[in-house]
Simulated scan of single mutants.
Amino acid sequence: MDNPMPIEPNPLFPWMFIIEEKRKESPTVFSLYLRSVDDQPFDFSPGQFNMISAIGGGEAAISIAGDPTDTHLLIHTLRIVGNVTRSLNTLQKKDPVFIRGPYGKGWPTEQAQGKTLILVAGGIGLPPLLPLIYKAKKQRGYFKKLVLLYGARTKEELLFMPFLEKMAQEKVIDLHLSLDRPSPGWNGHVGTVITLISTVQFDPQQTVVFCCGPEIMMRFAAREFERWKVPKENIFCSLERNMKCAIGICGHCQLSAYFLCKDGPVFPYEKIQKLLTIEEL
């Protein structure tokens, strides 16, 4: 009898995870710390995402925010913006959630090896960049220098501050913070995150930039780094649109010729530069 054909894994099949911990990060943001029911390892690359759902609550694409070397603990940070995230926010410790993934193309960390890597994050754009900080902590010297430029509207919306301050104290990251508008008790920089770029010293030819946040922020950040002579091929952006299937079939996340779920979410800036300037695309 001939050997049977191997069964390919179904990319639409969800796996059950259990909430080990739930943390409130801000008034509208929370994190879920998950383990699979059989404690099987879960491998992912920084910048990839999962489709996460609760029973009867729908499904949403959420970037992975945890340590890529810890294959038994999966972390997702979510902002409450719709029915799916509201449903997930009702869950508590030991409740089940369902995960499909990981999907998409992540950050090209190999291109930044041995160079200065500047992370530009706006608001909820920080979690997809956190795996890179974990990587820098575990692999000292992989990046010549890791700089985080992080901005939010208010002080209350700055996420993971104890962790970021600890990483700064341990010299894992060079941390620069900014608020869009002054907040009580804030003595730091005020302005968009883009205004932080001029405060950092870097060699443009030996610098790689990863941006994540609102599209308008990424567009102006990339343009500013271009002005500072960072090569366009060294600038990358993570795009997020209405992902439904995560495998490029449904077309909901299409941006011109690209399907963000499989061609992205991380793109070289030179590929999407013109697309980011087209209104309502």
Rank of each mutant, 00 (worst) to 15 (best):
C212A: 12
D38F: 09
I278M: 00
F143I: 08
L126V: 10
L148D: 01
I64W: 00
R227F: 07
L196Q: 06
P127Q: 08
Q205C: 02
Y269K: 02
L158A: 11
V172R: 01
R86M: 12
G248T: 12
N3A: 07
K22F: 07
L276W: 07
D95L: 04
L276N: 05
P131K: 14
G141Q: 02
T28S: 14
F267K: 06
F259A: 09
C253L: 12
G82F: 03
L148K: 05
L34Q: 06
P131A: 12
R223Q: 11
K271D: 13
F160D: 03
E156K: 15
L32Y: 08
R100A: 05
K244F: 00
F49Q: 01
T195W: 00
M243I: 04
I55M: 10
V29G: 04
E224H: 05
M1G: 12
K155M: 12
I197Q: 04
P6Y: 04
V200C: 09
K232V: 13
A221S: 13
P184F: 13
E110Q: 13
L148H: 03
A65S: 07
L73D: 01
Q48Y: 13
S87G: 13
K144T: 01
Y258K: 07
H189E: 14
P184S: 15
E59R: 03
Y269T: 04
G122C: 05
I249V: 14
K155R: 14
E280T: 14
N3R: 04
G185D: 15
P14D: 00
E280S: 15
E224T: 11
P204I: 10
G248C: 06
I235F: 07
L196C: 07
Q206S: 15
A54C: 13
K262C: 08
I173V: 10
P128R: 10
R23K: 12
